[in-house]
Design a protein around this nucleic acid. Sequence first.
DNA 1: TATCTTTATTATGTCATACATAATACACTA
DNA 2: TAGTGTATTATGTATGACATAATAAAGATA
Lengths: 234, 234
Amino acid sequence: MLTVITEEITGIDNSSLVDKVEARLVELLQLQKLKIGDSIPKEIELASALGVSRTVVREALLRLRMMGLIESKKKKGAVITSPDVFGNLSKSMNPYILDQETLREMFEIRLVLEIGMADLLFHRITPSDIEELKKIVANEPQVTQYHLFNIEHEITFHGKLYEITGNNAMKKFQKMLLPIFDYVHKSGILKKQPLFKTFVSHKELVDILEKGDSEKFRNGMRNHLENHFARIFE
Amino acid sequence: MLTVITEEITGIDNSSLVDKVEARLVELLQLQKLKIGDSIPKEIELASALGVSRTVVREALLRLRMMGLIESKKKKGAVITSPDVFGNLSKSMNPYILDQETLREMFEIRLVLEIGMADLLFHRITPSDIEELKKIVANEPQVTQYHLFNIEHEITFHGKLYEITGNNAMKKFQKMLLPIFDYVHKSGILKKQPLFKTFVSHKELVDILEKGDSEKFRNGMRNHLENHFARIFE
DNA sequence: TATCTTTATTATGTCATACATAATACACTA
DNA sequence: TAGTGTATTATGTATGACATAATAAAGATA
């Protein structure tokens, strides 16, 4: 009866039972009825409390688990966890599954992030960070004008930058992007081959971080990434 | 037997049956055995083919569905879809669920993106985009030095910018970030209250997009977002 | 008493079966 | 030919059972 009325108002109710249970559980979390660290009732109890079968409850819990809202252990039941926003994404971040359009977009986002992170870097960088960056650069092969594009060194250097931002979500995001970046770089998705010419080098970026300001860094990073931008923009 | 050997090599095998089936199915997708638009075998067939129960297959399929890899219709079975990377995230992007640390980080990422997107903007903006931006700005309330921070106009203007980038993933990401941004803005998470003082205005940003270059835009946007940065940096 | 081992308990993980539901296909009617 | 109704079918839901592994409790040994 009630659902009929609801349908008349809000249109057709497409949601399945699992959808409703999921929504109900999320709602409970929001209302702080359940805080982080708490363990939620067992599946059977939830089932009888919500008036559905254990099957439905299990599927709903599985969704919450995929969202990173809970973790379920064998005997202890499910425990509320501080949600890991990007944690679940990593599985779908598979270069062999994503279509080329999406891959290109991910590639772009990485470039955007690294240029835009300048202010975070300057506000949070410490002297020891700079020292570490210098060591990283020192371990890189000497370059004059052209150099062999070494993906390992790239990851080490740029990964450290993400770390310095103090933004864990961003750092995780970068970690997920790595295989994609690698794939896009090697594959034929982007038309032009990179020139492998170094514009602003890692060393110069470190110099800017030490003595310059965020504006200089943004321009430096933009220049450093010129090869990649050139490929994107045909 | 085989699993024992595997365990000895790779450590303890924590993965459940569902994990394995999920991995196997993803593997099949990767191998292009199944292309976009294809419908995969029915649950029962998969179950018998993989030697597991329908329950396990269903849970695995549910995961794939959450990853955006498939869509299952009532009779048609499941169909491979072009995965929507960020689509699934929207559910977990709930300000009332995420902890404050994460919320702040999301807030930061938005700022980083908007500063870093300059090059994409300049490379893809069209004259009609500029016209549209001018209209948007014209509809905003007149400001002199201080203005009422109107979240609606903010969303309209900045949303248009994301659109211009031509990066759908980024646009979707922004859309997901909106409720969070709104929440963080209003809540007491960030210490300082915003000054509501306009530095570089929307109109000036449009001017830069029309006559300036990406470097000028980055600086302009950085300045435009000064209030937000000030809150982040205490 | 303290620590280690063994056993019992328990909640999730997996399986099997049955039925409900809704989308499609097919046949039938006008 | 178009429209309607029926049959089919694959997913959605329910139920009951057992397997498994993590924990707690009991017991044994020093």
